[in-house]
Measured scan of single mutants.
Amino acid sequence: TTYKLILNGKTLKGETTTEAVDAETAERVFKEYAKKNGVDGEWTYDDATKTFTSTE
């Protein structure tokens, strides 16, 4: 399943996707990605669109 991440950081904005077996796995991948890029925001998830959003 393809999951999408929308980053709305103070210094980094953008989108990326990952293939994962479930939302929990995708969330771990995306949170590590955000951390590596210095984004520490509030997380939301929309199951209908398989989209995570992190907003600082």
Rank of each mutant, 00 (worst) to 15 (best):
L5C: 12
A23F: 14
A20G: 03
E32V: 07
D22E: 04
W43A: 01
K36Q: 13
K35T: 09
F30M: 02
D40I: 13
K35A: 13
D40L: 11
K50V: 03
W43P: 01
K50F: 08
K31L: 08
T18V: 14
A23W: 15
E24S: 10
Y3K: 01
D22M: 03
E19H: 13
Y3R: 00
A26W: 01
L7G: 01
E19Q: 14
L5G: 02
F30D: 00
T2G: 04
T49K: 06
K31H: 09
I6W: 04
A34V: 07
E19N: 12
V21S: 12
K31Q: 07
E19Y: 15
F30P: 00
D47Y: 08
E42F: 13
F52L: 00
Y3A: 01
D47V: 10
Y33L: 06
T55E: 07
K4I: 12
G9P: 03
G9C: 07
E15L: 08
E32M: 08
E27N: 05
T11L: 12
T49V: 05
L7I: 13
Y3V: 02
A34N: 02
T25P: 00
L5Q: 01
F52H: 01
G14S: 14
G14H: 14
R28H: 09
Y45V: 01
A48D: 12
D22G: 03
G38Y: 05
E32F: 05
D22N: 10
T18R: 04
V29A: 08
K10C: 13
Y3Q: 02
F52A: 00
S54A: 15
F52Q: 00
V21I: 13
N37K: 12
K50T: 03
A20R: 02
G38F: 06
K36N: 13
D22S: 08
T18G: 03
E42R: 09
A26L: 00
G41E: 04
V21W: 12
D46S: 05
E27R: 10
F52P: 00
T51E: 03
T51K: 02
V21Q: 13
K36F: 10
T18N: 02
G41Y: 05
A23M: 13
T2N: 07
T51G: 01
E15D: 06
W43Y: 03
V29L: 11
K13G: 05
Y33T: 03
A34I: 06
E24R: 09
E27W: 15
F30I: 00
N8Q: 10
K10N: 12
T11C: 15
L5T: 01
V39C: 08
T1H: 13
D46R: 02
T1W: 10
T49E: 06
L5P: 02
W43E: 01
W43M: 08
G38H: 07
T51C: 05
N8Y: 11
T44C: 08
F52G: 00
D46C: 10
V29T: 10
T18S: 05
E24C: 13
T2K: 11
V39N: 04
T55S: 10
G41A: 05
T18I: 15
T2Q: 10
E24N: 09
S54P: 04
T18K: 04
G38D: 06
Y3G: 02
E32T: 06
G9E: 03
V39D: 03
K31E: 03
F52Y: 05
T17E: 09
T44H: 11
R28A: 12
L7Q: 02
R28C: 09
Y45E: 01
